[in-house]
Design a protein around this nucleic acid. Structure first.
Lengths: 151, 151
DNA sequence: CTCAGTGCAAAGGATTTGCATGCCG
DNA sequence: CGGCATGCAAATCCTTTGCACTGAG
């Protein structure tokens, strides 16, 4: 839906392979397939959608491989409603963004926030770290509401 | 932990009763008990914690009533890790805040963001609504990282 | 040959639901 | 009285795990 620019796949695969190696994991065919499916979607996908992508993947392997990919920092797991959704880690796609979560159908789509807001957020993270001792890695900003279809 | 000021319980209960009525639900004893437990916690609670609050509540009723309360907009459901946590809707407690989510232990605590940031967020919501057609109700900002205990 | 990855089926755990009972309106 | 809320137990649903098999190094 967003048609945004993304990193060229070759580079992407290399980057992922390297992250996997860093946690002692291989970049297998199934894992590459998963990455391709997620890349092609341009939107966070749930397991049913991934399985339905016509790629002959075993459900258990999908779960297992997504866990491995997440641990390697290659994908992010988004839990919002009844089940989890997955998307490529944004630092891999050079596409930092946030989520529009529909409270009605549970659908999740992406949107990009103004740079100024991101800057403020970064400052807030530093401030919080300083004041509370909590060590923030990243932030997550979601807008909850009603999507066009469910309006 | 935050010791922040909250709305006086009497008012709170009235407000909740009214929201429940708006969706055709009653404010029963169990529901009131749930609200009290959440109010007393000052932090999002999971079902085990709610059940352990020494209030003799049936697990199924807790789930059912939290669902009702959420539908009435009296509590918010926070899904982050393996299970959900609940807290009073912030517009009831006049205590708009955000979450510090520990990636290690899953614990969730609250923090308040600078007013300037909230203002920016509100503007962004308006902008998104205008540009995408998505109708945002509220925003959710979480900082993910490592809490003091897990550091 | 060895060890990690895969698939299938069964297990697990949080959450939901069916049904009989109790209580409020 | 009548209908909704409650509790208990059984059922569901997403997710994880056990185990035997396959494939890459």
């Amino acid at each position: 839906m967003s048609g945004s620019v993304r990193v060229v796949p070759p580079e992407l695969h290399t980057a992922i392979a390297s992250r996997l190696r860093a946690v002692g994991q291989r970049y297998t065919t199934n894992r590459r397939t998963l990455v391709d499916v997620l890349l092609g979607a341009g939107q966070p996908l749930g397991i049913p959608e991934i399985l339905g992508a016509g790629e002959r993947l075993a459900q258990s392997s999908v779960y297992r491989n997504l866990a491995v990919l997440e641990q390697a920092g290659a994908v992010h797991r988004i839990v919002t409603g009844d089940f989890a959704r997955y998307e490529l880690a944004e630092d891999l796609t050079d596409d930092h963004h946030h989520h529009l979560v529909c409270s009605v159908c549970g659908d999740v789509s992406d949107f990009t926030a103004p740079a100024a807001l991101e800057t403020s957020l970064t400052k807030v993270m530093a401030k919080v770290a300083d004041e509370t001792g909590f060590a923030p890695d990243r932030h997550r900003l979601d807008l909850l509401g009603t999507c066009t279809r469910c309006a």
